[in-house]
């Protein structure tokens, strides 16, 4: 009897924790939506997304987030171009080429890299990468989209490497054996067979890496220069969506247009991340089927 009651209570507790996580997510989302939507009473959705000027404290305020979207996209694009090929190549090296000892060492390094807090990476980037970029390109400031991309690439790498590596290891052994039994060399087996088997997982890994990059705040705020102008090159300061929220939320008046606009930026970020995660999920599930 006592046992039954115990079981009953435990079951309920587990159920409640499960429900709680859903409820919290919903509450957060509702709150975000409620606060963010208010901005559209004064600024149209289209104007908000495509406005070229972000002067939130001028009078009247100009609340166009196109420069911020462009900033985020540019920094992300740069990070993707660096991190995806590098990450996939590393994953193949770790999974297929490296000797067991090298593999273990590399995997530990990747773990350490993922454990570095982003503010620390940002700080390191600020004192090393930024002056380097400035000197290399002979530009007035090293706080550029390019520097941000490099730093973000470091943050995306652990995700891309470890998930791609899992996908490569999950490719059935029989494919590899079949290819080798046909006389394929290790390299031919790799790029003609294994890569096809691992592709869905590798794409998902890249998407998750991108998701991580788009949501990153601290490091980009420290490194990208935070100028809210529509960028034309990689070598100029930009401001991202995330950095805008983080930098301005503290100094805005609750209930002001500016305040609501920051929440609306939150919605935009949420939608972007959501889409990326859904895409990644699609590929991961395709993998399982």
């Amino acid at each position: 009897m006592l046992k039954k009651i115990k079981e009953f209570i435990i079951e309920r507790l587990i159920f409640l924790s499960g429900i709680a996580s859903i409820v919290f997510v919903l509450l957060i989302f509702i709150f975000l939506l409620k606060e963010g939507i208010s901005i559209f009473k004064t600024v149209g959705l289209f104007d908000f997304l495509s406005g070229r000027f972000w002067y939130p404290i001028s009078d009247p305020p100009k609340l166009g987030i196109l420069p911020l979207i462009m900033g985020s996209l540019l920094v992300t694009l740069g990070a993707v171009v660096i991190a995806v090929p590098l990450g996939i190549a590393s994953a193949f090296y770790i999974a297929e080429v490296a000797s067991p000892r090298v593999r273990d060492a590399l995997k530990s390094c990747v773990e350490v890299l993922s454990a570095i807090p982003s503010v620390v990476l940002g700080f390191i980037g600020m004192v090393t990468l930024v002056p380097f970029v400035k000197a290399l390109f002979k530009i007035p400031t090293g706080l550029t989209a390019f520097s941000g991309s490099i730093m973000l690439a470091f943050m995306a790498l652990p995700t891309i490497i470890s998930i791609s590596e899992d996908a490569i290891n999950a490719v059935p052994r029989q494919y590899k054996e079949g290819a080798i039994a046909l006389g394929a060399t290790h390299w031919q087996t790799l790029y003609r067979v294994i890569i096809h088997g691992a592709m869905p997982g590798v794409i998902a890994a890249s998407m998750l890496g991108i998701g991580r990059v788009i949501g990153e705040t601290m490091a980009v705020m420290m490194i990208t220069g935070n100028a809210a102008v529509i960028p034309t090159t990689f070598l100029q300061p930009v401001r991202t969506l995330t950095a805008t929220i983080a930098a301005e939320m503290g100094e805005t008046v609750r209930g002001s247009e500016h305040y609501y606009a920051l929440f609306a930026i939150g919605i935009v970020l949420f939608v972007i991340s959501f889409l990326i995660n859904v895409t990644a999920d699609l590929f991961l599930h395709k993998d399982k089927r």
Partner: peptide
């Protein structure tokens, strides 16, 4: 050549499976 217990065509098209050997050689 070797034929395995569990048929193990590559995750490629029918054509590419047969063309695999001639291509690599």
């Amino acid at each position: 050549g070797m034929v395995f217990q569990r048929p193990n065509p590559f995750p490629l098209s029918v054509y590419e499976n047969v063309a695999f050997g001639p291509r690599i050689h």
